[in-house]
Design a protein around this nucleic acid. Structure first.
Lengths: 144, 144
DNA sequence: GCTTGACCCTGTAGCGGCTACAGGGTGTTT
DNA sequence: AAACACCCTGTAGCCGCTACAGGGTCAAGC
């Protein structure tokens, strides 16, 4: 399998495959006489594993950690649980902050009904508010 | 006001202030005899404006656009509304995808009750599944 | 046999939004 | 006079790719 075929099979860009090799996530494959990379089925499996993790927004550093378990089936997998838990906590924290952000932006948006001169624009006015030490509609009572 | 004082007042790193100047968001201030930057109140206002926008996760490119309205109070502010709407749409899209992600990770996490050998770890097993063309618990029936 | 086009190679730079140095100068305090 | 906090410029690093530039290789069609 050449790199283009591998990439297509895994729905990944060719450059991404080379990138994963460069950072050591994907082992360097054999080369044919002309210098082209030649991949085996195990490479596709590993690449699919990586992409599956990435679809779950797991960092490449954590993917590397998970791959160590793939490579060492006899190891205890407690760290795998911890890693998924941490990832879940990260996602939930980000969810919380995005929910807050949504509220803030909605409130901010409601400050401008009909477009106006910038000088009287409710949105710009609110964005400027904390600069003057006032409270703003989007960030509750405090100016941060 | 020296850069350290400005930074402290706006709860920003000194490097960030210099960075904003370098990319043209913050106008270059006057310099004192020793070459130190000397800031006026308007700089603090502008910096607070930028940070307020950043707290709302508005990109620096969009902040630059907003600042143009601050600088030109006679302009029509319709673009401001559009910009906030776009930002809100971005946040909501990200919220959707994070909610999906949370479900997927929760399902994945449930695959491992008690830590085990990696060879029998339900989580690793599920992460490997699509590599073998099987369905995985986290991504529904299809293999992505 | 010569061109076209699709593919492959290496190496490097860019994205955003900072952050962190290195290697220097300045200014106040002890 | 030394210690320390602050300031300066310039550059490189973070993440996870993506996009070149500048080449080589190979099969198909004329």
């Amino acid at each position: 399998m050449k790199i283009g075929e591998l990439a297509k099979a895994a729905h990944v860009e060719v450059e991404t495959v080379r990138y994963y090799e460069r950072i050591g996530l994907l082992p360097a494959p054999a080369r044919s006489d002309n210098g082209y990379r030649v991949y085996a089925g195990t490479h596709l499996e590993r690449l699919a594993f990586i992409r599956h993790c990435r679809a779950l927004d797991i960092t490449l550093a954590d993917v590397a950690r998970l791959l160590r378990f793939v490579d060492d089936p006899a190891a205890q997998c407690a760290e795998v649980n911890t890693l998924i838990d941490t990832q879940l906590a990260r996602v939930r924290a980000r969810l919380d902050s995005l929910r807050t952000l949504e509220r803030q932006l909605t409130t901010l948006r409601s400050q401008c009904g009909t477009p106006n001169r910038a000088a009287h624009c409710g949105i710009l006015h609110e964005l400027e508010a904390p600069a003057l030490g006032d409270a703003c509609v989007c960030h509750g009572g405090h100016t941060d």
